[in-house]
Design a protein around this nucleic acid. Structure first.
Lengths: 235, 235
DNA sequence: TGCATACAATATGTATACAAAATCTGTCCC
DNA sequence: GGGACAGATTTTGTATACATATTGTATGCA
């Protein structure tokens, strides 16, 4: 979307931010009329925004049934961790080869903001700052054929990362610290045009996320008696 | 887009086919009013179609300046052959692992149509039949994170392939024959759930395209005297 | 009481009318 | 004759009204 500030781009930005931060939960139904009222535009441009978001994977459009925030199923989580390491390694290698000096500066600034968000930002601030960092590496790679999948991955990466940017355990805090260090090393490798090193770092960075999620999906267990079975599915 | 037949989906399909077959050349300006008249719908739904096509990479939207068929530059050709082998190898490996029996039948049928197109079809028929074959492998892979890039690749692959599905030399004819054989072997590997073999075939299949394009971009030379220098650049 | 059908209410899809932006064209001045 | 500005024309963006499809609800029948 255009970078200037129009009601349309504001609505777009707000929806993207809401979806990335889980403020708009996966599966949420998006009512055209409500969104129009909130952002002060009519249905025609709002529908175009929703259609663009659909093309980018943020929302799903169903015939005569409106838009809903795209789901994050168990199956898609598997597909995610199959695709992510490969794509990200490719992106970082290309980024190391093709980056401009200005982009390296931009990436370093994004890392500064990320670190500040880790110190005094909200969970959403952290996830968004991390997202921004990775999107810059995507721009550096400068490959229009890889970007569509990369951006689709970043969408779910941001949503997944919301679980561990609200650290509860020491393990969570360690994960965040390691991620921060990875970013520093990624900047170094890209600045040095070291494609091989960048590729390795991509693998390591994703392994970190994957392990964290594995622990989240399969927690250690609490050693307590079973609760009563659920009465019925909600909704 | 929905598979049923509505004015909207007809317009979508027509535009996609036109773009894939170079009938609508890269850079062509698309006039909303003209398209509306041709396909019998008003501007609102047509604009939504164009916006969807933009999301899928078929067209480019410029602020207040309408849509144009997306370009195929020299730079993007390089990016194309960097991304294609990796993505396609991943797609075919996953296809071998995840395909359903029904999909294998579908793929075999697509290959039949492809072979028929090679015998008595037009250049466009061949390129579209080849495109259909590969899109089915994409569906088989069943990975929503890889599909965006894969589909983006297939768009330009179809357009590039238009140059060698109108065979002029024996080399062109050999390329087509080899591509056909590759397809047969791909079906076998996928049917046998042989992911490793499928991955190898993907590499071989792209190497074929790449060599063909390399020869097209850098032809053998004619051993003739130089013509007069061009007076000015066209456009 | 349970289910099916008809009707009402709501939401989506499309067409048209209007506003704003860009492009084209003709004229005036240098 | 060439370039710049102003008005006219064309094209894009947005709002609103209308048509169509879906969903919820109530009523009647088994």
């Amino acid at each position: 979307m255009q970078s200037e500030s129009s009601p349309k781009s504001n609505a777009y930005d707000a929806l993207v931010a809401g979806i990335l931060t889980l403020d708009l939960a996966p599966g949420t139904d998006l009512d055209e009329a409500r969104l129009c009222a909130e952002h002060g535009l009519s249905r025609t441009p709002m529908r175009e925004v929703l259609r663009q978001l659909a093309g980018e994977g943020y929302v799903t459009l169903r015939q005569n049934r409106g838009a809903q925030v795209s789901e994050m199923s168990h199956a898609s989580l598997r597909a995610f961790f199959i695709a992510a390491p490969m794509i990200y390694a490719a992106i970082l290698q290309l980024a190391a080869e093709n980056r401009t000096p200005a982009q390296v500066v931009e990436l370093a600034e994004a890392q500064d903001i990320f670190i500040r968000a880790l110190r005094n930002g909200s969970t959403a601030d952290r996830a968004l700052a991390n997202d921004r960092f990775h999107r810059i590496t995507g721009e550096m790679a400068d490959n229009p054929f890889l970007l569509p999948s990369f951006n689709r991955l970043l969408l779910d990466h941001a949503r997944i990362s919301m679980t561990f940017y609200a650290p509860r355990t020491d393990a969570d805090k360690n994960t965040i610290k390691t991620a921060r260090d990875h970013h520093e090393q990624i900047i170094e490798a890209i600045d040095a045009r070291d494609a091989a090193r960048a590729g390795e770092l991509a693998q390591a960075h994703w392994a970190l996320s994957r392990d964290r999620i594995a622990q989240f999906v399969m927690p250690g267990g609490l050693d307590l008696p079973l609760g009563p079975p659920p009465q019925e599915a909600r909704l």
